[in-house]
Simulated assay, not measured.
Amino acid sequence: MEAVRAIKPLIRVAALSGSLRKYSFSTGLLRAAIDLTKESVPGIEIEYIDISLLPLLNTDLEIDGTYPPVIESFRQKILEADSILFACPEYNYSVSAPLKNALDWASRAPNVWANKPAAVISTGGDCGGGRSQYHLRQIGVFLDLHFINKPEFTLNAFQPPQKFDEEGNLVDEAAKERLKQVLVSLQAFTLRLQGK
């Protein structure tokens, strides 16, 4: 009986990468997060959502309150998720254009981001994408996204030791442990908001 109580309810996480590059470090962070849920963070199921196929936001594509099939499918995946995990690269102190496009499409009426718990992770040079994270959090205020506050996850991809391999996979064990703590925090926050 105690073992049954110890099992946490499954939460479904939609994971979005703001980078479309084949060997993207941002997408590599999401692959590492997916692996961690299989190895050491039970109760979380992460689905990677590919945003590369979304057309640029154009309200002419909205017809009688409906959206093109690719947009409808994307919006449905966000709606069905219990929480969101963003891998947010930094472009000119801000979020990337593909990520902003995805944010805007899913915010069209009805806003499917509303009341979703979320976490953001980033990697890059200097401050590891931290400025883009703060801009994403600012956008999230209007979208009614609820970001975890801690732990923050930024990673300088170019400072030794090596963080990623040639295919963009996270190989740094210390970074994996920090990423695990983000997932644990997102899980706890999601369950708290669900009243579980």
Rank of each mutant, 00 (worst) to 15 (best):
E2S: 12
A3I: 11
V4P: 00
V4D: 09
A6D: 10
A6N: 12
K8A: 13
P9D: 03
P9F: 04
I11L: 05
R12N: 15
V13H: 05
V13P: 04
S17T: 14
G18D: 04
S19D: 09
L20F: 09
R21P: 11
R21D: 08
K22V: 14
S24E: 04
F25I: 09
S26F: 01
S26W: 00
L29E: 07
L29M: 12
R31F: 11
A33W: 02
D35E: 14
D35K: 14
D35L: 04
L36Q: 04
T37A: 09
T37V: 09
T37Q: 07
E39M: 04
S40A: 09
V41A: 01
P42F: 00
G43V: 08
Y48I: 08
D50N: 15
S52K: 14
L53R: 14
L53M: 03
L53Y: 03
P55L: 04
N58W: 06
N58M: 11
N58E: 09
N58R: 11
T59S: 12
D60A: 12
I63W: 01
I63T: 14
I63K: 15
D64R: 11
T66L: 10
T66A: 05
Y67L: 12
P68S: 12
P68V: 12
I71Q: 11
Q76C: 01
Q76F: 02
K77L: 06
K77Y: 02
K77N: 07
I78R: 04
I84S: 08
L85I: 12
C88G: 00
N92M: 10
N92H: 13
Y93P: 00
S94G: 15
A97E: 11
P98T: 08
L99N: 02
K100E: 02
K100W: 01
L103G: 03
L103Q: 02
W105E: 01
A106P: 04
A106C: 07
S107M: 02
R108S: 01
A109S: 14
A109V: 07
P110L: 00
V112H: 11
A114G: 06
A114N: 10
N115T: 02
N115C: 00
N115Q: 13
P117Q: 13
A118H: 05
A118E: 05
A119V: 08
S122L: 06
T123C: 15
T123M: 09
T123Q: 08
G125H: 03
D126T: 13
D126I: 15
C127I: 14
R131P: 00
R131Y: 08
H135R: 05
Q138E: 14
G140D: 05
F142W: 08
L143K: 09
L143Q: 06
D144F: 01
D144A: 11
D144P: 00
H146G: 00
I148Y: 06
K150Q: 15
K150Y: 14
F153T: 05
L155V: 02
N156G: 07
A157I: 07
Q159V: 14
P160D: 13
K163T: 02
E166H: 05
G168E: 06
G168A: 08
N169C: 04
D172C: 12
E173N: 09
A174Q: 13
A175W: 07
E177G: 01
L179V: 10
K180H: 13
Q181K: 15
V182D: 03
V182S: 05
L183Q: 10
S185N: 10
Q187R: 15
F189W: 13
T190C: 04
T190Q: 03
L191S: 03
L191F: 05
L191M: 10
R192N: 02
R192S: 05
Q194W: 06
Q194G: 06
